[in-house]
Amino acid sequence: MALVYDDAKAKIVEFVESKSKTKSKFYFNDLCGVFPEEKQRDVKKILNQMVAEEIMIYWSSGSTTLYGLKGAGKQAAAEHED
């Protein structure tokens, strides 16, 4: 079943928001878990599009990378970027 962008986007946002009390950043694998039937590469396309639309942003530990909703999370504030 091919992913429809708007549906997939809504599901990812719903998943991330449901966890927002404890964490705001997710590994790619965690987000693929929202679509257990889909190929990882197809999920990646959805996420790429969400990044391009400024809904999601990357967060990097240097060695790994996580995804989160733009503006969410404590790290953004802790880094006190101007």
Partner: peptide, 12 residues
């Protein structure tokens, strides 16, 4: 708790 997301620190 205000600077970090505890689950991320645990998972790290």
């Amino acid at each position: 708790d205000s600077m970090c997301e505890v689950p991320l620190a645990v998972a790290a």
